[in-house]
């Protein structure tokens, strides 16, 4: 299909995603060479190829970053050295985020509860400032309306989003006190607060933090984010 001309995938919608989690490069050449009955000279078009290139990897040091928050203050990941950090990719226009921060939503109290335990919560907006989801005014309105008192960081060129491979809002990351990325993926198994089937809600971030607290290996280190 025709490539959409949008600047960021879903600037309002939640399906944001500023970051290039992919780079157009290198499926290994050998994957195709001699792979079939065709001879190389039969090739008539350039190979269309793409492969993801994300620097944030589970079990590896979380990539450092430095961003301005909505009040213009510089915040570095390194400022939280020695502390457990939760990073949330956020968009004030995302319907999933709106639901999660609404009364009874999964994020209504979580950032505050974690902050009380000494865990750092960073929200990141990887959105162009000209898009509604990236407008500081809209972000601040959301924060005020929902009583959201977190470090709200702006990633207007999506660079940090790309580095982390953030694809949706919300997309959650947990970094342990040693600076190692220990979880990435969905907030929970309940988009819009609804678990599919008859299952119970599993808060993946809370579960990862509980594993860290119990000095266990994070059992579910990766899930597929939604948004």
């Amino acid at each position: 299909m025709k490539r959409a001309s949008r600047v960021f995938a879903h600037p309002f919608g939640g399906l944001w995603v500023a970051g290039a989690a992919f780079a157009l490069f290198s499926v290994p050449a050998w994957a195709l060479q001699d792979a079939g009955q065709e001879k190389k000279e039969d090739k008539k078009e350039e190979v269309k190829k793409e492969e993801k290139a994300v620097k944030a990897e589970i079990g590896k040091p979380a990539p450092p970053f430095e961003l301005k928050d909505v009040d213009g203050k510089t915040v570095k990941l390194a400022d939280s050295k020695g502390k457990t950090v939760v990073i949330e990719w956020f968009n004030p226009s995302c319907p999933f985020c709106v639901q999660a921060y609404s009364e009874g939503g999964a994020l209504k109290k979580l950032p505050e509860e974690l902050k009380a335990k000494g865990i750092v919560w960073l929200s990141v907006v990887s959105e162009k400032p000209q898009n509604p989801g990236g407008k500081v005014e809209n972000i601040k309105t959301f924060m005020e309306k929902n009583g959201l008192a977190v470090s709200m960081l702006l990633d207007p060129d999506g660079k940090v989003g790309k580095t982390y491979g953030a694809k949706t809002t919300p997309h959650m990351f947990v970094i342990d006190a040693k600076g190692t990325l220990v979880y990435q993926g969905a907030l929970d198994n309940a988009p819009f607060g609804k678990v599919e089937g008859d299952g119970e809600r599993i808060g993946y971030v809370e579960a990862a933090l509980a594993d860290l607290e119990a000095k266990r290996k994070v059992e579910r280190a990766e899930t597929k984010s939604y948004g």
Partner: peptide, 25 residues
């Protein structure tokens, strides 16, 4: 389709004269 164990990282498509190939990484 969604899978917890096997995920698509990238794919390359190579059209040729009498066939087409796709390599899924």
């Amino acid at each position: 389709l969604a899978s917890e164990s096997t995920t698509l990282v990238g794919r390359a498509i190579e059209p040729m004269k009498s066939a087409c190939r796709l390599a899924a990484t």
